[in-house]
Amino acid sequence: MGIGDYYKILKVNRDATNEDLKKSYKNLAMKWHPDKNNQYPLRKQEFEAKFKKISEAYDVLSDPKKRQIYDLYGEYPINSNRIGEENGDGSNLKEDVAVDVVESCLVCTLEELYKGCRKKVNIIRTVPDEFGKLKCIEEILKIDIKPGWKKGTKITFPGKGNQQPGSPPSDLIFVVNERPHSSFKRDGNDLVMIQKILLLESLVGKTLNLRTLDGRDLTIEVTDIVKPGDELVVPDEGMPVAKELNKKGNLRIKFDVMFPSRLTTHQKHDLRMILFDADDN
C-alpha cells in the first residue's frame, strides 16, 4: 500500500462512517480519474498517482478489519520481520520493526459519556509465534466508560499492543473522542444548547420541553423577557463530574431570538402602541 494518511487523502475525519467514505471517494475519484481528465494530458502521471492513492485509502478504510489494523498501527499491511536472510558476508540479517506504545481512537456518544457504559472492542495485533515469526491474533477487549469522562481520557491495556521477538509486548492505549450531538455541546462539565424562540415568546414567555441525555423529560418555564444573546443556567443538569460523586455541571441554554421577516402596517401600529404603553409604565 502507499504511504500517507489515508484519512487526509480521502478528506474525512477519523470517525467517518462508511457513507462518509463512499461519498468522499466518489467525489475524489470523479475528480482524479485519469480517463476523465483527458483535457490535461501533461498531468496524466499526476492524475494516475492521485487516483492510486485515493483507491488505496478507500480499499483499506472501507474494510473493517483493514481499517482496524491501520488505526492501530498506522499502516496496512503490517511490516513483518525478515528473518533468515543473509548479508553478503553470509551472516544472518534480522530486521526488527520497532513498535512503541500504540494509541487508538475510541469514539463515544455524549449519551455514553453521560451515563457510562461498557464497550467491546475487537483488536488485531501482531505477536511472534513459536518460531519467532510474526502473526496476527484477534482479541475482544472490554472497556468500562465512566460517567463524566472527557475527550482525551486515556485507557491503557498493558501488554496488549504489538510484540517483537525477544521483546515484551507494548501497551495499547485507547483515547476517548466525542461524537458531536444534535442538541448539546459540551463545555467542560457544562452542557450548552441553542434554543430558538420567536420574538413574541421572548417577550411574553415560553415553556421549554427538553429531553435529557439520560432520557428524562425536563420542563423549564421562561418567564423573564429574553434579549438576543441571553443565557439561562439550569443548575445540576450538565455532565457528571467524573471525580466527584453525585456532582454535575450546569445546563446553559443560549437563546436565539427569531425576528419576523416582515410586519404589516397594522401590526407595526399595534406594536408601537403596545411598546409605548410598556415604556410609560
Rank of each mutant, 00 (worst) to 15 (best):
L28A: 03
I155P: 11
A98T: 11
K160I: 06
G74W: 09
D35N: 10
T212M: 12
Q39E: 13
K196W: 02
I197H: 09
I145E: 02
I124R: 05
M273L: 12
Y76R: 03
W32A: 02
K151V: 13
L210C: 06
N37W: 02
D277E: 15
K150V: 10
R14I: 12
P128C: 07
L218E: 13
I143N: 14
R262A: 11
E111I: 02
L110E: 08
P169H: 04
N13H: 07
R14E: 15
R125N: 15
E244N: 08
K133C: 06
K26R: 03
T156S: 03
L198I: 05
L93K: 15
K8N: 14
Y73W: 09
E48I: 13
R43H: 12
D214P: 09
N250T: 04
N281P: 05
V192E: 11
N79L: 09
G159V: 02
E237K: 15
P147E: 03
E138W: 06
C117F: 00
L172M: 06
P240I: 04
G205E: 01
M30L: 13
S80R: 03
R211L: 02
K150E: 15
L245T: 09
F157L: 01
S62I: 13
K185E: 14
E56L: 07
G88Y: 06
F47Q: 06
T219M: 04
E46V: 12
Y7I: 05
F47H: 07
E237P: 11
K53G: 11
G84M: 05
N18F: 07
D171E: 06
I9S: 04
N281S: 06
D15T: 00
Q68S: 11
M193A: 08
G215I: 02
D35G: 03
R186C: 06
Y6F: 13
E221L: 00
V222W: 02
D256N: 14
F131V: 03
V176W: 04
E221F: 00
K268P: 05
K146R: 15
R211G: 03
D171Y: 05
D89F: 08
G152T: 00
K11E: 15
V176N: 11
K243M: 14
R211H: 03
W32G: 01
Y70M: 07
L106A: 08
N209K: 14
V101N: 03
I225K: 06
V233T: 14
P34N: 02
D187L: 08
D279S: 07
I143D: 10
R216V: 01
E221R: 01
I274A: 15
L218G: 12
W32D: 10
E130Y: 08
D236I: 00
C105W: 05
N18H: 11
N281H: 10
L213C: 11
M30K: 14
G148N: 07
C108M: 13
S62Q: 08
T265V: 10
I3H: 11
N209W: 00
L42F: 09
A242K: 11
K268I: 10
D5V: 01
V176R: 10
I3W: 09
S183V: 12
E231G: 04
R211A: 01
N79E: 06
Y70K: 06
L21I: 04
K268V: 13
E95F: 06
N87V: 00
N122Q: 09
G132I: 06
T109S: 14
L199Y: 14
A29D: 15
L191S: 07
K151P: 13
N162E: 05
F276E: 15
L106F: 08
P180Q: 00
